[in-house]
Design a protein around this nucleic acid. Structure first.
Lengths: 263, 263
DNA sequence: CTATGCATGTCGATA
DNA sequence: TATCGACGTGCATAG
């Protein structure tokens, strides 16, 4: 066992000895890494079985569990934060880790017959994470500076009138035509066009002058003709410009959205 | 440096010394774990910044990159498989890791000013992963909800009439055409198609309107054209949906995986 | 609590 | 390669 200020390494620990180490690490909310030969069963919304093989199991401070194979961005099996972690010695030689989620009821069972490396990390991390432009940011930017849509565009917004998922922005152009703006943070796909069309369609029967504009940083391939055929419009928006506008209006708020201090 | 058959541990390695270790691990397609104090910038579809703090960076065999904080199921920053990994010494004292994805163009930059622990794992893992419900479960689900096959499909089944190995489900579609359903738990292979064809062939002589449908969670590569040529159909079935249907109907045991701890 | 929509979604299959 | 749909999606937010 190697001890350092912020980590402990247990090479080739026996399953029996690992019990205390793991329970202790979970209790102390450390980050636990377990590499070894294991077999995994999951039962819950679906069911899965993972045959024997060497993997890396990560149990984090919030008791989220990730089982990683040697490839793939996604863990092959997992349990979200807050689950119950149980450990048990099976047949006196194997280590069983059970991670149970209550809502929905899901159980994950990991059985190790060999542990190559157990590591405990105590990560001190208070750094703020900030993601620069979200759909909400774009919306705010447009509200702050409607000319981003076009000259003399005005937003007519009653916040209560805007349930999420419905219209992003409702406004009026310089000729007084009503305008429905749909914001996309990424590339405009067919679905977004259909969605906007769905909003415009019923309204255009009472007012044919209504316009629909999709605002996004990028237009997907082949989407332009679709927009044209549906008489909808596209306005490209620049992420950096949004960030600038937000920063200028209320400099302190820019990085407020995603701050999550950790310890 | 501790060496074992399938892992290497480098406690408190200097950024300078880590360069070779990391490059070598990436070249050899090992799984690389780097714990230390770092700062992260991401620029691509969006942009993000993560201030200084201690995290665990995982670079997997397929060059996917995951940056994990002490909490959260999801990595705070990441790069999907296949990206380019570059390492660099900054100011002679800091380690910069750059992970670049080409399509879409995205860059991830991790700057370490301190490495607490670098680990290299060589995970041998040939175990099969299967997300599934049993063939029996699928059959039950379809009996309980025939619309899983298609709208207005009806099962015409006498349980005793169904010797195993013959027809899985016999039914009628909304136009009154007889339908033979073959269920596969896993990926549909050529043999399953041949098998179903074997059932349909003789019957279609007396009734050319008979249909054959293979129900499975997955269609093998190149099987679609084969099905088409034999005028057979494929209906994808979702394991999760089956599990839900079964669970809702009553507590039927979906599986009994964990009776055998080891083989 | 459920319901809804976004995501650097990821991942796979298909044209 | 771009598009499309599914996912144990996860996740936040609204009602």
């Amino acid at each position: 066992m190697l001890q350092k200020t912020n980590f402990f390494v247990y090479p080739n620990i026996t399953p029996k000895d690992s019990l205390f180490v793991i329970q202790n690490a979970v209790a102390k909310q450390s980050v636990l890494l377990i590499a070894g030969n294991c077999h995994v069963n999951y039962e819950g919304r679906a069911s899965s079985k993972l045959d024997w093989g060497e993997r890396l199991v990560m149990i984090k401070s919030d008791r989220s569990v990730l089982i990683h194979r040697s490839t793939g961005y996604e863990p092959v099996n997992w349990q979200p934060p807050g689950c119950i972690i149980q450990t048990e010695l099976v047949n006196g030689i194997d280590l069983k880790i059970r991670a149970i989620r209550s809502q929905p009821r899901e159980t994950l069972e990991i059985l190790f017959d060999e542990l190559s490396l157990v590591t405990i990390l105590n990560l001190v991390d208070k750094g703020a994470f900030s993601l620069y432009v979200s759909e909400e940011d774009i919306k705010k930017s447009i509200m702050l500076r409607p000319s981003l849509i076009e000259e003399n565009f005005r937003c007519i917004i009653d916040e209560k009138m805007q349930p999420t998922g419905f219209i992003d922005i409702f406004g009026v152009d310089e000729k007084g035509n009503p305008v429905i703006v749909e914001i996309k943070r990424g590339t405009v796909r067919k679905e977004a066009v259909i969605q906007l069309r769905g909003y415009i369609e019923p309204l255009s029967k009472t007012n044919p002058r209504i316009r629909g504009i999709i605002v996004a940083p990028k237009l997907g391939k082949g989407i332009k003709p679709l927009l044209d055929s549906m008489k909808l419009e596209y306005k490209r928006i620049n992420a950096k410009k949004c960030a600038e506008i937000l920063k200028r209006s209320e400099g302190s708020k820019i990085s407020d959205f995603f701050t999550k201090p950790k310890s």
